[in-house]
Simulated assay, not measured.
Amino acid sequence: MQWHNTATRFGALAKCFHWTSAAAFIGAYAVVYYVIWFMDDTADESLPVLNIHWVLGLLVGFLVLPRLLWRWLDVQPEDPPGPALEHALAHAAHWALYGLLIVMPVTGYLGTGAPTDFGLFSVTGFNDTALFAWIHLTWGVGWEAFEAPVDAVHHFIGKFVAWAVVLLHVAAALFHHRVRRDGVLMRMLPGGR
């Protein structure tokens, strides 16, 4: 098993980061839409299901920093043949994805006033942290006043921006695979050569 990237393909660690992040991100969406469509999200019965959304969201957040560090430390596969503008747009789209992987978990956590139970440990809700206590004391902002705009940002990005960026990423991968046939998708698939 090749852990490091090469000039032509991604290594096992980059693939693991990519697919684990993707699975957690998609899973978080599936769970929250299940709650929205089939449950009363204000009822106590929805909290264990919402907890799964929070766990998956925090997992995305926990993975993004080591993923970015690994991207910085390891060689990146070369761009496929194509125009410079296309490469610049592809790089911008990748950074937009990384931005999503940071902004969505951060705004999700900051707007959650309940602990996230991972089973073996729990992450305190932001409203019970020393940082929020400092914000409250310094600016006199209560939890409801703080939570509402953070939640609005999280929901807006989740409903509109994230879908566009993720669908663009998937469409570009399929375009490279089906139209260009340049191996871009294959170099990120598990076991792909």
Rank of each mutant, 00 (worst) to 15 (best):
L13K: 08
G119K: 11
V165I: 15
Y29H: 06
I157D: 06
T20D: 01
N51W: 11
V49C: 09
L56V: 10
G192H: 08
P190G: 14
N51S: 11
K159C: 00
W37V: 14
W70P: 00
W54T: 00
V103P: 01
I102P: 00
A43Y: 08
L65N: 00
D151M: 09
W134F: 12
L65C: 04
P105C: 08
V64C: 06
C16N: 06
R71Q: 09
W19N: 10
N5H: 06
T116E: 04
G57W: 01
W134S: 02
W54H: 13
V64M: 07
E144N: 07
N51Y: 12
T138D: 12
Y34K: 09
R178M: 10
D182C: 12
A24L: 13
W54K: 15
P83V: 08
H154R: 11
Q76A: 10
D44I: 11
A84K: 14
T20K: 01
W72Q: 07
W139M: 07
R193V: 06
D151T: 11
E86T: 09
A22E: 02
E78C: 04
S46I: 04
Y29A: 10
A23M: 10
T138E: 14
D151P: 00
W163E: 04
V184W: 03
C16P: 00
T8M: 05
P81W: 01
T116P: 01
L100Q: 03
G99N: 12
G140D: 12
A173K: 09
R9D: 10
H154C: 03
V32F: 01
E78H: 07
D79T: 03
C16E: 00
A28Q: 01
F121W: 13
A173T: 15
P48R: 12
H169Q: 04
L168M: 11
G158E: 08
A22K: 01
A24S: 15
G125P: 00
L69G: 14
D40N: 15
Y98W: 12
H94Q: 14
V166G: 01
A173G: 08
F25Q: 03
F175M: 08
R187G: 07
Y34H: 15
I157F: 13
D117T: 10
R193C: 00
V166A: 09
W19L: 13
H169E: 00
K159H: 00
P149A: 11
W70M: 03
V165Y: 01
V75L: 12
A88K: 12
H177E: 06
A130D: 14
K15L: 08
F132H: 04
M188W: 08
I135E: 03
F146S: 02
G191P: 09
F132K: 02
E86S: 11
H176S: 07
K15S: 03
F118S: 04
A145W: 05
L89W: 07
M1Y: 05
R193Q: 09
N51H: 14
S46R: 06
G140V: 15
R67F: 07
T42D: 04
W19Q: 09
L174K: 09
F17A: 02
R178L: 13
G125E: 00
H18M: 08
S21L: 06
L189Q: 03
G82E: 13
M188G: 02
W72N: 05
V31Q: 01
D182P: 06
W3V: 09
T129F: 05
